[in-house]
């Protein structure tokens, strides 16, 4: 499963849970041929790999495709929901419920049987220039948040920004490790369905702390840009950081790694300073004199 598929998997789990599924069989990677009665009694979630329902086989729905691919040559007795990833239904395939497509790549052979079909594109084609508008909106939100937090709690942001700029290696290491671990723990908590609300909250909390870390970086940057009040410095710096992240995201791979590193530095800075409540000082080897 790719990290970018995590939100789709969480949405799939939420849909499965709200649909009354007591359990979910999640495919994360590899090739899987679903046999009749071989899966669990609950929902099937394709979160990676290639899943095949062979001809002559009937499985119970619902089936959610969040990443990877699902090939249906047999029969699905229930709904099939394509959130992302690929879905193909062969001539011999049949979906006895509704085939709902939100953002997947769906291909249905002419001879396939589909009881009902719904297309709800979540991300419709956007007009040129809308990306720029979205980036500007993000920057404005970051600037406003930075202004409010920077004016009200300048000491907290000073600590976060200080840790991030004075100890970038430690901040990146802690931010990266906690970020990756939190993501993985959150996904596996979500898989239990019972802990789904906790996972969603943890996901939100992680995002908020990462955003707070960006404001900390913004404070540190704005403070270096000129003699501004803490609120203005944070606002200007946060806008700059968000725009830099947007520009980095345009560069394939290297840009994404650089952007993740920047976010990790801020996230780690927020964590090692206990959300800015204390100044971070790494352990030192005491001198013998």
């Amino acid at each position: 499963m790719r990290p970018e598929a995590v939100p789709f998997v969480i949405v799939a789990l939420l849909l499965a849970s709200s649909g009354g599924a007591g359990s979910a069989d999640v495919v994360l990677a590899g090739d899987r041929v679903v046999t009749e009665g071989g899966g669990s009694a609950g929902a099937l979630i394709v979160a990676g790999g290639n899943v095949t329902v062979p001809a002559g086989t009937t499985i119970q729905g619902p089936v959610y495709v969040a990443d990877g691919s699902l090939s249906v040559a047999g029969r699905v007795d229930g709904d099939v929901v394509a959130l992302a990833g690929g879905l193909s239904v062969a001539d011999t395939g049949a979906i006895l419920g509704t085939l709902e497509n939100y953002g997947g790549s769906v291909s249905v052979a002419p001879g396939a049987t589909i009881a009902d079909r719904a297309e709800t594109p979540v991300l419709p084609d956007r007009p040129p220039g809308s990306s720029l508008g979205f980036a500007l909106l993000e920057a404005i939100i970051a600037g406003l948040a930075g202004f409010l937090v920077g004016r009200r709690f300048p000491g907290l942001l000073r600590n976060v920004g200080g840790a991030a700029t004075e100890h970038p290696v430690v901040s990146t290491t802690v931010g990266g490790l906690v970020g990756v671990t939190a993501l993985a723990v959150g996904v596996f908590m979500a898989f239990t369905l019972i802990l789904l609300p906790v996972a969603a909250l943890a996901f939100l909390a992680t995002l908020l702390v990462a955003g707070y870390g960006v404001l900390g970086l913004g404070y540190a940057l704005g403070d270096r840009m000129g003699r501004f009040s803490p609120g203005r410095a944070t606002a200007i710096g946060s806008v700059a950081v968000v725009l830099v992240l947007r520009v980095l995201a345009l560069i394939p791979f290297v840009g994404a790694v650089a952007a993740l590193t920047v976010v990790s530095i801020g996230f780690g800075g927020a964590l090692v300073t206990y959300l800015g409540t204390t100044h971070f000082e790494p352990a030192r080897v005491p001198s013998l004199e």
Partner: peptide
Amino acid sequence: FTHLLYTFDLRTATDASGTPPL
């Protein structure tokens, strides 16, 4: 966490041909 992942994989893997995630 690591052993939680392994036990989770064993509990949820319904097909022996499936390769565990990296």
